[in-house]
Design a protein around this nucleic acid. Structure first.
Lengths: 256, 256
DNA sequence: GAGCGGCTTCCACCCAGCGGAAACCACTAG
DNA sequence: CTAGTGGTTTCCGCTGGGTGGAAGCCGCTC
């Protein structure tokens, strides 16, 4: 925005400082000391102290007995309202999907260049955990991500591949041209897969959740051990069935 | 602080105003117009406008095409870190609990005078929905709530029953003395039940999740149709088994 | 008991935030 | 086409909340 500095150290307005303190937990989920918080938010200690005290008093932060701060339940409670329509509507069907397949089931949306995991269902058995609820992964490395990207407008896809693509494993597809044609294939077939592209040992398959207006707003997918990758496509009908059930909720969300 | 008013209209500090805007979504989850937000936060329109713009710019709020504001995904993402240890640890076992019983499964903690629902697992079949994730219900009306209250220190229990107890249905137990002795019974038996005390047609059973240090920090429970209330206690062994699996995680959380 | 790292409190300066007022916009009714 | 209405956005000069360096205060270690 501004030509010189995009934001002065710590931000300028009070609000931005308070938000910077919250943002400190984006990188490290665990509890942080006041000093750590002040550092991460790039604020002088006294300022951080005052703001943090107010945030904690309100319930946005909580303090443990060691005096460290963590995100508070009141904030969590309020934040549950973000995209509630979608999450609430999808949840029971995602549960069905898990019951039917017994494989880890995911719901994700696109946030910038990443897939944001909105929900995730898994039991105590299968846990090849790469993603987590509230976590992000690069679009081109995951099945849900590929779906979300494939159904985006052409210029979004082009802009995406124009960047330097991160490769979590040796198998990750990072070649721009080949990635683009893979996306074309996904749009035709109506589903995407990955084989050890996020982490060795696991593979995944995903389908789009149609928003009704032609746009794809979300994606659901399954993750399993890569030894069972041949069995993957068998789940397609189930996945599509579940996606169809979720779709109405997605389209209701953001209606005229 | 100040002798007269405890807080001037809208709060005093900038931070408190920003937080008041977020708090507006505590009561109504859906999207709100600027005017509604300003009203609920008790702020003059221009002030609300400025702050809301900053919150939205950061991602704490999102704007739909009608210009209304809702809680943003970035805030949700950060807030996922609240009590993450507990939620992440409990999730797979809660899933097991659901798989074994096919009944709606809950995880709750105490927040003041209410049970806060941390997680909830259910399929598309059984949905006698009273609670929801991120929602609250009075302690004395729910099974998880009774458990949380029963294992609290005596003075907490006494303070609780000393208030006017809300009664969602005719069946809700509101008599202080009888409630206290019911709680004693729960502590002895190690589980609590309800019969149509939250809403007609459903009943529930819950057990404590021990924090290791003797304190009970969470509770898990099942909700089902009240026609099956006789079948309820059969689930006790399962519930206790699952609770035992979750316990280690609860005790790890807030360790010295 | 001196030294240290982190937290908390103080306080005088000053600019960020304030909010009344007025312009702006999209609709709708006449 | 004008007037009316309800919501949103911009303007701007006054002022008190926010600021952060400095100094005091732990609890711990060597």
């Amino acid at each position: 925005m501004t030509p010189g500095e995009q934001d002065a150290p710590g931000g300028r307005t009070v609000t931005s400082k308070a938000l910077a303190l919250l943002a400190a937990f984006e990188t490290s989920p665990g509890p942080l000391s006041l000093t750590q918080l002040a550092e991460r938010a790039d604020l002088p200690l006294p300022t951080a102290h005052r703001l943090v005290a107010e945030l904690a008093g309100w319930g946005a932060l909580e303090r443990d007995e060691q005096g460290r701060y963590a995100v508070g339940l009141r904030l969590w409670e309020i934040a549950q309202n973000a995209q509630r329509e979608l999450r609430d509507a999808a949840r029971p069907y995602l549960q069905d999907l898990f019951s039917l397949t017994q494989e880890t089931a995911h719901l994700a949306v696109r946030e910038g260049h990443e897939a944001l995991y909105i929900d995730r269902i898994y039991s105590s058995k299968r846990v090849p955990r790469a993603s987590r609820v509230g976590g992000r992964l690069p679009l081109h490395a995951t099945a849900v991500g590929k779906v979300l990207l494939a159904f985006e407008e052409p210029w979004v896809r082009d802009a995406y591949v124009a960047r330097d693509l991160e490769a979590p494993t040796r198998q990750t597809h990072v070649n721009p041209t080949r990635l683009l044609s893979e996306l074309d294939g996904i749009r035709e077939q109506g589903y995407a897969t990955t084989h050890e592209e996020v982490r060795p040992g696991s593979c995944s398959i995903a389908v789009p959740v149609d928003g009704g207006d032609g746009r794809v707003r979300a994606s659901i997918g399954l993750v399993m051990l890569s030894t069972q990758s041949d069995r993957m496509v068998r789940y397609l009908p189930t996945l599509r069935g579940v996606a169809a059930r979720i779709a109405p909720a997605v389209s209701r969300w953001r209606a005229p």
